[in-house]
Simulated scan of single mutants.
Amino acid sequence: MKSLKFYASILMLLVTVTVFSQNEKDQKIISDAEKAKNKLINTDEGLKDFFSNSSGYVIFPNVGEGALIIGGASGNGAVYENGTLVGMASLKKVDVGLQAGGQEITEVIFFETEDALNEFKQGEYKFTAEASAIAVEKGAAKNANYSDGVIVFTKPKKGLMADLSIGGQKFNYKPIHK
Rank of each mutant, 00 (worst) to 15 (best):
E124V: 03
A141T: 12
F60K: 08
N145P: 04
A135V: 05
G64R: 00
A33Y: 06
I41M: 07
N38M: 02
G149R: 06
K92I: 04
K93R: 15
I69V: 15
E24V: 09
S90N: 15
A131T: 13
G71R: 02
A33P: 14
Q22K: 05
V96T: 10
A116L: 09
A33E: 10
A116Y: 09
D95L: 07
A73L: 09
I69C: 11
N145C: 02
K93V: 14
F127A: 01
V86F: 06
K138Y: 03
G46Y: 11
A129M: 04
S21A: 02
F50H: 01
V136E: 08
D115H: 04
S132V: 14
N53C: 06
K92S: 11
V108K: 05
F51G: 04
Y57F: 15
S52K: 10
G75P: 11
I30V: 14
V79G: 13
E81A: 15
E124W: 01
S21L: 08
G139I: 02
A67W: 00
K138E: 13
L91S: 09
E137V: 02
G87C: 06
K93E: 15
V150K: 11
V108T: 15
G75M: 03
S132C: 00
A73T: 10
A73G: 14
I69A: 14
S21N: 05
G101F: 01
V86G: 03
P61R: 04
E65L: 06
K142F: 14
G46K: 04
G123M: 07
K28T: 12
N38L: 05
A100F: 14
T106M: 08
Q22E: 11
D95E: 15
V79R: 06
A135S: 06
A129R: 02
S52T: 05
S31A: 14
N42Q: 15
V152K: 13
S147D: 15
S54H: 12
D95W: 13
D32S: 11
N145H: 13
G75Y: 01
P61Q: 03
A135N: 05
F120A: 05
S54Q: 10
Y80A: 08
A135C: 00
V79E: 11
E81K: 13
T84D: 08
M88V: 06
S52G: 00
E114A: 09
G72V: 04
F51S: 05
Y80K: 07
K92Q: 12
Q122Y: 08
L40G: 03
G71C: 09
V108F: 09
E130F: 12
Y80E: 11
Y146N: 08
Q122F: 09
K92E: 08
K93Y: 06
K37M: 11
Y146T: 10
E119D: 14
A141E: 10
S74C: 00
I109Q: 03
F50K: 01
K35A: 14
